[in-house]
Each structure stands twice: as C-alpha cells, then as structure tokens.
C-alpha cells in the first residue's frame, strides 16, 4: 500500500466488505461554523465497532459508531446532527462550536 492508501477509509470499507464483514459508511454532508472535518469526510465502521477515518476531531465519533451499528442491523440510512446547542441525551457536542450533519448508510 502507498502512503495515501494506508489511512484511506473507503479502501478499508471495500476490503472489510469483501472479507464478509458488515460495514456502514458515515459521511459529513453539511457543516456550519468551525467544523473540524470538511464536508465529504468519511468514517467507516464494521459490525463489531471497529472504525477507520473521522467525521470530527474525535468529539462525536463514539456516537456515530453507536448509530452505525443500528444502521448495519436495519439497513435504513440515518441523518445525524451534532452541534453545541444540541442537548439531546445520547448526543454529544462539538467543543469547537461548529455544527455538522452526518449521513450514515450501510454498504450493501
């Protein structure tokens, strides 16, 4: 593998799926304010909670992984929103003050 491939979440997702693992792909689709990762960034998750990539600076990955496991089971995509103003119990905030929307889908 070349340098840029080692940490490539989309290549990881393909390899995992081809190995027979269940996989979800989370993508940042919208950002407001000082979001840590730009739109288009990916986090990929397998059925056991292993992950590669990032959608934030580590602030919300835990919550995304939990939701991704749901998506893997149900097959139904989800849109997640994270921001400082959000105080919903299971949701965590972004300490940078930004707001992001993350789309989570199953890799069929």
């Amino acid at each position: 593998m070349t340098a840029s491939e080692i940490l490539d979440p989309l290549l990881t997702a393909q390899t995992w799926r081809e190995d027979g693992r269940q996989v979800a792909i989370a993508t940042v689709v919208e950002t407001w304010g000082s979001a840590p990762r730009p739109s288009g960034s990916h986090l990929v998750i397998d059925g056991e909670g292993n992950f590669e990539g990032s959608v934030s600076g580590g602030c919300v990955e835990g919550a995304v992984i939990t939701e991704a496991l749901d998506v893997i089971t149900s097959g139904v995509p989800k849109m997640l929103e994270f921001g400082v103003a959000d105080e919903t119990a299971w949701r965590v905030g972004l300490s940078c003050g930004g707001k992001i929307r993350v789309y989570v889908e199953r890799l069929a």
């Binding site: 989309l10 290549l11 997702a13 393909q14 799926r17 081809e18 792909i25 889908e105 890799l107 069929a108």
Partner: peptide, 11 residues
Amino acid sequence: MELETLAKLNA
C-alpha cells in the same frame, strides 16, 4: 451504497 459502486470508485 453498493459494494460494486464503492469498488468502481476506489478503482
């Protein structure tokens, strides 16, 4: 996304 689509994208 389908695995086939992802494989084409990665290629």
